[in-house]
């Protein structure tokens, strides 16, 4: 295996918000995420809405500085502050957003959108060469040359997402953060975009950080999976291990909720009790304990550290292989 291009250790992002009358509350949107990204491979991050997936994306893309933890890209450490200043480093991580309708500037033609990153980061590239590169990139993502001079409102969602991918690739990044890149698209378009991404990954040796809540897409797309709950990774490991042998009760519940196309197969669906707690008042101990059917006194008091070699999980009472859900399952 090649050396990792990005190493994140204990990444944390807290937000301070006003809770009225001068009181401050701290939202722990991201709490202690450690992972590695390797060229040519995909790490998928899954979890419910509000679990910190998008915060992770913003921190990795250096849109926001982390509140704690360390990140190294290609061996260069990214500090808590000075990060965003280093242009060369910044150009190595690019992002594709979820909503292709909001992520393209409506006043810029596709060509201008594609050339902007080059203009800003590589002023030494002549304008003719810049245009040539943008046109080449258009072909690479499966768009036609005449699309160069058009405006975003003339495109469908899928085509726009291709433009967004093309823009992200203009600076030859090593890492692409994909923040739910297909969840706003039609099912048929989704697979086209996913295939494009797989294709590009093979050709350009990109490392993907793929954020999604769609487990069937993740199953198809990822090499490694990280499951998050309330800002904390609760289980991470190779895709096969996590999908066939989930150890954390939350992962298990999440997997059991994936819709299946086979009506005859017996569904062992685990229904979780209660709501996702507010990220402002994360329960003490293991954040999952109020909803977990295996919770004990220990879970309410202490947070289980994430442990394991390749397949890591944070649980005092991991689900044993072959164990059948919780008592209420069925």
């Amino acid at each position: 295996m090649t050396a990792p291009i990005l190493q994140a250790e204990d990444l944390t992002r807290h937000y301070e918000i006003k809770a009225g009358f001068g009181k401050h509350a701290v939202v722990r949107a991201l709490n202690g995420a450690s992972f590695e990204l390797t060229p040519g491979r995909t790490l998928a991050v899954v979890g419910e809405s509000g679990c910190g997936k998008s915060t992770l994306a913003r921190v990795v893309t250096m849109i926001e500085p982390p509140s704690g933890g360390a990140m190294r890209i290609g061996g260069n450490p990214i500090g808590a502050e000075g990060a965003s200043r280093d242009r060369a480093l910044r150009a190595m991580v690019q992002i594709v957003f979820q909503d292709p309708y909001g992520s393209l500037n409506p006043r810029q033609t596709i060509g201008q959108t594609l050339m902007e990153p080059l203009k800003l980061n590589r002023p030494e590239v002549s304008s003719a060469e810049r245009e040539q590169r943008a046109r080449d990139m258009l072909g690479m993502v499966g768009l036609r040359p005449e699309h160069f001079d058009r405006y975003p409102h003339m495109f469908s969602g899928g085509q726009r997402q291709r433009v967004a991918v093309a823009r992200a690739l203009m600076l030859d990044p090593k890492i692409l953060v994909l923040d739910e890149p297909v969840s706003a698209l039609d099912l048929s378009i989704q697979s086209q975009i996913l295939n494009l991404l797989v294709d590009l990954q093979e050709r350009l040796e990109l490392a993907y950080l793929f954020i999604s809540h769609d487990l069937s897409v993740v199953r198809h797309f990822a090499d490694e999976v990280m499951v998050m709950y309330l800002g904390r990774p609760v289980e991470q490991g190779p895709k096969e291990d996590v999908f066939t042998n989930p150890r954390h009760p939350y992962t298990r519940a999440l997997l059991s909720a994936t819709p299946m196309a086979d009506p005859r197969r017996k569904r062992n669906r685990i229904k979780l009790e209660g709501e996702l707690p507010s990220p402002m008042s994360v329960p003490e101990g293991c954040p999952f304990n109020p909803r977990c059917w295996k919770a004990t006194e220990a879970c309410r008091k202490n947070f289980p550290d994430i442990s394991g070699n390749t397949h890591r999980y944070a649980c005092f009472h991991p689900v044993e292989p072959g164990e059948d859900g919780h008592p209420g399952a069925g």
């Binding site: 893309t61 250096m62 849109i63 242009r87 910044r90 150009a91 991580v93 690019q94 992002i95 957003f97 979820q98 909503d99 909001g102 992520s103 393209l104 500037n105 409506p106 902007e116 990153p117 800003l120 980061n121 967004a164 823009r167 203009m170 600076l171």
Partner: peptide, 12 residues
């Protein structure tokens, strides 16, 4: 909006 963030990531 996302396109503003995208411009920021692009180095604007």
């Amino acid at each position: 909006k996302d396109y503003v963030t995208a411009a920021r990531v692009a180095g604007a």
